[in-house]
Structure formats: structure tokens, C-alpha cells
Design a protein around this nucleic acid. Structure first.
Length: 756
DNA sequence: AGCTTTCCC
């Protein structure tokens, strides 16, 4: 259709007079097979049996700890003695029957237990409660060298995500009759970044994996704990892999640092593939394997349907599947479709909505809800709210955010495209890639399970069963996909000199470890002999990556003298994906760019971030309105202020700052061009290797590796030609892009290298 | 040659 050619991106359905045909790109797809000749009224749903109680707390429903964002089923009120109905539901959990077995298995000399419990088994809430009254869990006095110290008394339980840690803590606190926030004393607490609630008398402390790692740096023996429970180890984050390594060392060590008192360790996983974990924790000289307890979960059955032939066009198959479900399956029952990214979601949404308009009026409406991380909280909220009763069905188009991070209520039908975008660091190239790849079986199973949380469901896989069989069992653990710079620094700071001998369930390539060691040496974090330096020790204390930490330390040196400014910039950069929203249409662009003019600096993104933070902090009237006008991400700016406060706090504690900075709002004073140069040179201390020069053919070529790179469209320098640039990120997506770009002079590169 | 899966200190 020629009239569509001027808008190639906007795919259109055909006119309403031919409702059985959809046009996608240059293809015409017939939907007639799905439009039943006589549109039979949708049946009432069969009466659903009483749910078999997936008595996991209502966690993960909401991303942020926003008091506004209540779960669809608000928590029951409790009395100060605990709600008897809570005990009743606890007893209904599959894990309840194993209580004495779990207690018994950790008494005596056995310090390690592995529990495999599927979704809904209740392990996260119950296991710590089972253990916290055990005799070994009391705080004891012990001799460490010549000191008398307290050892034990608390149980730590780690979670990969903040929301999980805080909501589980809330749930367990209520179950134990000491609700959080009700009193200054209680038996349950939590600790996540920017949010700590550990009442006096806490026996059970939920924390994120990153928090426990920080505690490990300060106390390698974890003396305040009698036990550590590692939950969701199957997710295999870098942090949980490091924790597993440290715990293995503590278990097999001499316990001198704990005054001879053992640390009990419980490892919990949701997937049945446990051999690796068992082998990892098995002591070298032991004949007895690691004790293992397997507990069934409580899920409704989900019927799985594969395609008979490989799918060539995901959008087409998706559209057909959605309308097939919609026209043939009863209400209620929402649809959750897993797609790879924002663009795919947006184009699918357009197609569905356009096709919906052609549906007959007696067909229930479809409400399309996109769901991905960059979406604002309010926009995400739509996906969680129940659709209006009766004549409407919700279709949630999600990235893999809906796989583990959030739970969408009301879903009975899952559509799985079989792919996900995966970040992979290529240490040889010093860059990362972000590309859509086939998911693993375990990921496919996880997606399928999302259909069976509230009743029996169906999962439509947009791939064949042969394709499913060919999938890898599990995803590559993050430690094999990420830059190991941070992991190596954490080990070094925790006193692990010989990185190669550190116990890890999966060990990264030797070359990538070597690259990380060299990089850390370049940053001054390691001495020539590979031992950690004072600089390295400091870097490990900051909640930012080592190169940013190095810039922060340099900023305090007299020739740069820009610590507060560097903190502002790093706070913006590490607050989220991008503090600037992407501008969609041309009209919005023109209007917003007019406002953004006062933020943009010709020196590039670093100075633009600084200006943005300074103007935001100077804004005293209405920061929300200020952000809206400039299309600045409010969530990220609030987060940036939190990070700024935390970084300032650490700098004060570490004596990098001598006095408390003045409170907001401060009048905005633009940084002079001279100081801007000094600031950029300061960033070269951390990113001196990440520069590119303009080649005669006006492409940019990196100084290390000689890669041709393009300035990413999100940069204020996009489309501009400068002699030399410094970039903070290098990602391959559609092509090789550099992000967070600043103008530099070529001779600074030499200057920056001379110090090393 | 105009863009970004998801967490976390």
C-alpha cells in the first residue's frame, strides 16, 4: 500500500471493512480462521476450585516501595499477638509438614542444608521461623583471640531483589506477631539500600544479596549471625555466587574468627537442578553428600501448547494467538505475553488496538497493558489493576520483568515468544552486547508457570516442541556474562589474594579475570604484586563501579577539586538507565528541546548531567512539574538524590569530604568552561582507556581495539563531529554504540596515561 | 545507519 510508505514504522491494519485481514509490514494475514462465523457468546467460567493456597506473601507485585501501590488483596489486619488465621494458612503450606525434619537436619554437627522448593512451597517465609528458636540460634559469648565477643543470635536471609526482602519481612513480622513499624522492638527486620528497619531484638533479618556482601567486607566471619539462608540461589546473580563462595569458605574454615561457634547455612533453590550446588558445597573429604530436602510447590496445572511449525513472524503469530484466546476462551482470564523489548511491545500494542476496533460490538473488549522496566510507575500500574469485571480482557505485553521481578494477577494464558534480550560482556573487546537470544528451558518453564498462579492455565509457546528440546537447560550465570571487575575487587577487598583459587560454582575465563586484574591495577586498586591498595579498599566501599570510584577519589585531589560535582554526576548516571526520557514525536521533541536547552552543554553528557542535577536540586517550586516539562525521569532523579546523599555520607566518613555540603536548594551557578575541562580530565582518571578519535572518513575509532563506534542517539553529542571523545559505556545493540560521551582533546589521552 | 532485558551495593 503506497500510502503507508511515508510512515514505514507505523504498521497499520487494513480498513475496517475487511475485519478478517490484518496487514503487518507488507504482509497480509488472514484472521478469518479465528473469527468464528457465528460469534458464540463467551461462556461463564467454570467454577474454580478453592485455590490450594500459593501462600507466598503478596510479594513482587509492585516494583517500588510506594505506599500508594497496594496489592490487589490488601494484607489482613493483625493483632499484636499475630493473627490466628495467619497460623492457619501457614499450616496449610507444603513446607509445614517438614518443620521437624528441617530443624533436626541442622542440629548437631551438620551445618548445611539444601532445600529445593517450588513456587508456593512457603520456604522463604517459614524456614527462618522454624529455625530462629533452635538452641544453636542463641547469641553466645565467645573468645576471639583475647577478646570476648558476642556471636550469633540472628538469622540472615538473602533475596535478589529489594521488594522481596521488604515484603517478605513484613509478612513474616506479622506472622510472628511483631508487625514492622508498630514498635521499636520486634523479631523481624530487613536491610536494603536506602531502607533499613531492624528493630531491637530482631531474630530474622531479610536482606538483599548486595547488603550481605557489604556486611561480609566489614565482618568476614558474619559474627552477628547464627545462620545464613540463601534464597533463590538458582537465579545465579554475581552477588549470590560470591556469597556462596564466602559461605563455603566459612563452613570449611577453622571457625576461629567466630570463637569456635559454627555458622549454619541453608541454601534454597526453586529449580530441581541441584547437582551443581550439591557438588559445590560438598566438603572435599566427606563421604556424606550435602543434605537435600525437596518440597513440592503449589501450582495449578498449565497446559502447554507448542506450534507445529517454526514461527517466522513473531508479531503475526502473537496477534493470531491473542485473538484466538480472546474469541475462544472464557472470561475472566487475562493474557500475559512475553516479548523481548520496548519496541516490540509498542508495535504489538498498536497492532492489537487497531485490530480491536474492527471487532464486532458483542465481542468483549481487550485492554492492552505494556509492561517493561523503563515505564513509569503509573503506567506499570495498569498491568496490575484488575480489568473491569465482565466484558473486558487484559493483555499484558511484558519483557522478562514479568518472569521473576513482578507478578501480574489474573493471568490464565501465557504466550511465550521464546526469546529474551541478554547482556553479555566481551572482555576481549572491552564492550558489552545486548541482543535477543533464545531463552533456556528453565526460563520457559518459569514463563509457563505464570499462567498457573490463580487457576489452571494455558501456555502457548510460539515455537515448536523440537525447538524447546533444543534449548539450554539453564541460563548462563551472570558471572559468566558480566564484566568481572567488580567481583574481583570484592574478593580482593575481602582478603582473597589468589582469585583463581576462590571457590565459585562457575569460574569465568582466566583471560577475563586477567583483564579485570589489569584494569584494577590501572585504576590503582591493586599494587604491582596484585595485593589490594588503600585506593582499592576505598573503591570497594562505594556502591558504584570501580572506574566511577576512581574518578570520585581523583576529584578530591587539588588539581581537580570537584568532588561534589562528580558525586552529582555519578548519582545521575547510576540512578537508572537514563535520566532523560526518549522523545517520541517531532512535535514533543521541539517543545521539550526548548526547555532542555538550559541543561544541554556542548562539552557533552557528563556536563549535561551535572547541569541537570544542579538545576533540579535548585528547583524549589515543583520538581515534578520541572521534570515533566523537560521529560526528565522523575523516578531516576529521586533515586539520584538518594545516591548523592549516600555518596556524600561515605565521603564524609572516609574523610574525603571535610564538611557537610550545604542543603538544597542552592542557587544554580553554571560551571565555567575552565573548570569543565578540569572535571573532564578528572573523569579521564577512570576512563582514560575509553576514548575514540575522529577518523578522516568522519567515523569514530576507539584508541583501544580500534573499533569503529557511533555516538548513541541518546547522547547530546549524537551526530556531532569532534576531534576526540571520551565515553563511559560501549554497547553493541543495533550497531556498536558509545554512550555517556564527552568532548576531549587528543593530548589529554597521553596526559591521562602518563600517571600510570 | 535515530535508541535501551533485568537486578543490586
Amino acid at each position: 500500500m503506497a500510502d503507508d510508505e511515508h510512515k514505514p514504522k507505523r504498521r497499520k491494519t487494513k480498513t475496517a471493512n475487511d475485519a478478517s485481514v490484518v496487514k503487518i509490514g507488507n504482509k497480509t494475514i488472514s484472521l478469518s480462521a479465528y473469527l468464528a462465523p457465528e460469534k458464540k457468546p463467551l461462556e461463564k467460567p467454570p467454577s474454580i476450585q478453592e485455590p490450594v493456597a500459593t501462600e507466598e506473601p503478596q510479594r513482587d507485585v509492585i516494583k517500588e516501595n510506594d505506599p500508594q501501590t497496594q496489592t490487589p488483596h490488601p494484607p489482613k489486619r493483625t493483632t499484636s499477638n499475630g493473627d490466628p488465621s495467619l497460623l492457619k494458612s501457614r499450616k496449610a503450606l507444603p513446607i509445614w509438614a517438614h518443620q521437624s525434619e528441617i530443624k533436626a537436619s541442622l542440629r548437631g554437627d551438620n551445618d548445611l542444608l539444601l532445600i529445593v522448593g517450588e513456587t508456593g512451597s512457603g520456604k522463604s517465609t517459614q524456614v527462618p521461623q522454624f529455625l530462629c528458636d533452635e538452641p544453636w540460634c542463641r547469641r553466645k559469648k565467645a573468645q576471639v583471640q583475647s577478646d570476648t565477643v558476642n556471636v550469633g543470635g540472628m538469622i540472615a536471609i538473602t533475596q535478589p531483589r529489594r521488594v522481596a526482602a521488604t515484603t517478605l519481612a513484613g509478612r513474616v513480622a506479622r506472622e510472628m506477631g511483631t508487625p514492622l513499624g508498630a514498635s521499636r522492638e520486634g523479631s523481624v527486620g530487613y536491610s536494603v539500600r536506602f531502607d533499613h528497619n531492624v528493630p531491637k531484638g530482631t531474630k530474622i533479618k531479610f536482606l538483599t544479596e548486595g547488603m550481605l556482601l557489604q556486611e561480609l567486607l566489614r565482618d568476614p566471619n558474619l559474627r552477628q549471625y547464627s545462620a545464613v539462608i540463601v534464597d533463590e540461589i538458582h537465579e545465579r546473580s554475581v552477588d549470590v555466587d560470591l556469597i556462596a563462595g564466602f559461605l563455603k569458605q566459612i563452613l570449611s574454615g577453622d571457625k576461629v574468627g567466630r570463637g569456635g561457634i559454627p555458622l549454619k547455612v541453608v541454601i534454597m533453590s526453586a529449580t530441581a537442578d541441584v547437582e551443581k550446588i550439591q557438588t559445590f558445597f560438598a566438603p572435599h573429604n566427606s563421604r556424606s553428600p550435602v543434605r537435600l530436602l525437596q518440597i513440592k510447590g503449589r501450582q495449578y496445572p498449565v497446559e502447554i501448547k507448542h506450534t507445529s511449525k517454526p514461527v517466522t513472524d513473531i508479531q503475526e503469530a502473537l496477534l493470531k494467538q491473542i485473538f484466538d484466546i480472546h474469541l475462544h476462551e472464557p472470561l475472566p482470564g487475562d493474557i500475559l505475553a512475553f516479548l523481548t523489548g520496548q519496541e516490540e511491545i509498542e508495535s504489538a500494542q498498536r497492532l492489537i488496538e487497531e485490530y480491536c476496533e474492527t471487532l464486532a460490538s458483542d465481542v468483549p473488549k481487550l485492554l492492552v497493558c505494556p509492561l517493561y522496566g523503563q515505564l513509569s510507575i503509573q503506567a506499570q500500574q495498569n498491568a496490575f489493576l484488575p480489568a473491569k469485571k465482565g466484558f473486558i480482557r487484559k493483555v499484558v505485553l511484558a519483557t522478562n520483568i514479568a518472569e521473576t521481578s513482578v507478578t501480574v494477577p489474573g493471568v490464565r494464558y501465557v504466550i511465550d515468544c521464546g526469546k529474551a534480550k541478554v547482556k553479555q560482556f566481551r572482555s576481549q573487546l572491552g564492550m558489552e552486547s545486548l541482543l535477543a537470544k533464545a531463552i533456556s528451558k528453565s526460563s520457559a518453564i518459569q514463563r509457563t508457570g505464570r499462567a498457573g498462579r490463580e487457576g489452571p492455565g494455558k501456555c502457548y509457546r510460539l515455537y515448536t516442541s523440537a525447538t524447546y528440546d533444543s534449548l539450554k537447560e539453564a541460563d548462563l550465570p551472570e558471572i559468566l556474562r558480566n564484566d568481572v571487575l567488580g567481583a574481583v575487587l570484592t574478593m580482593k577487598a575481602r582478603g582473597i589474594n589468589d582469585i583463581l583459587s576462590f571457590p565459585l560454582m562457575d569460574f569465568p575465563d582466566i583471560e577475563s579475570v586477567e583483564k579485570a586484574l589489569i584494569h584494577l591495577h590501572f585504576l590503582g586498586a591493586l599494587a604491582d604484586d596484585g595485593t589490594i591498595t588503600e585506593v582499592g579498599r576505598k573503591l570497594a566501599l562505594f556502591p558504584i563501579s570501580a572506574p566511577y570510584g576512581r574518578v570520585l577519589l581523583a576529584a578530591r585531589e587539588p588539581q581537580y577539586d570537584c568532588l561534589l560535582e562528580v558525586i552529582d554526576i555519578i548519582a545521575c548516571i547510576t540512578s537508572g538507565d537514563n535520566i532523560f526520557h526518549q522523545l517520541q514525536s517531532e512535535e514533543v521533541r521541539e517543545e521539550v528541546e526548548e526547555y532542555r536547552k538550559e541543561l544541554y552543554r556542548r562539552e557533552g553528557d557528563i556536563l549535561t548531567y551535572l547541569t541537570t542535577m544542579q538545576r533540579y536540586a535548585a528547583e524549589n517550586a515543583d520538581r515534578i512539574e520541572w521534570c515533566k516539562k523537560r521529560k526528565v525521569n522523575i523516578r531516576n532523579m529521586k533515586q539520584a538524590l538518594n545516591i548523592r546523599k549516600q555518596l556524600r555520607g561515605i565521603c564524609l566518613k572516609e574523610k574525603l569530604l571535610t564538611e557537610t555540603p550545604p542543603p538544597d536548594p542552592q542557587p544554580f551557578v553554571p560551571m565555567s568552561p575552565e573548570r569543565a575541562i578540569s572535571l573532564l580530565k578528572c573523569f579521564m582518571k577512570g576512563f582514560g582507556t575509553k576514548c575514540a578519535l575522529l577518523a578522516p572518513d568522519s567515523s569514530y575509532v576507539t584508541i583501544q581495539g580500534k573499533h569503529v563506534v557511533a555516538i548513541h542517539p541518546s547522547s547530546v553529542l549524537h551526530g556531532q563531529k569532534r576531534e576526540a571523545i571520551m565515553f563511559l559505556e560501549h554497547v553493541f545493540t543495533q550497531r556498536s554504540y558509545v554512550k555517556k560521551v564527552s568532548t576531549i582533546q587528543a593530548d589529554w589521552i597521553v596526559e591521562a596515561m602518563e600517571g600510570h
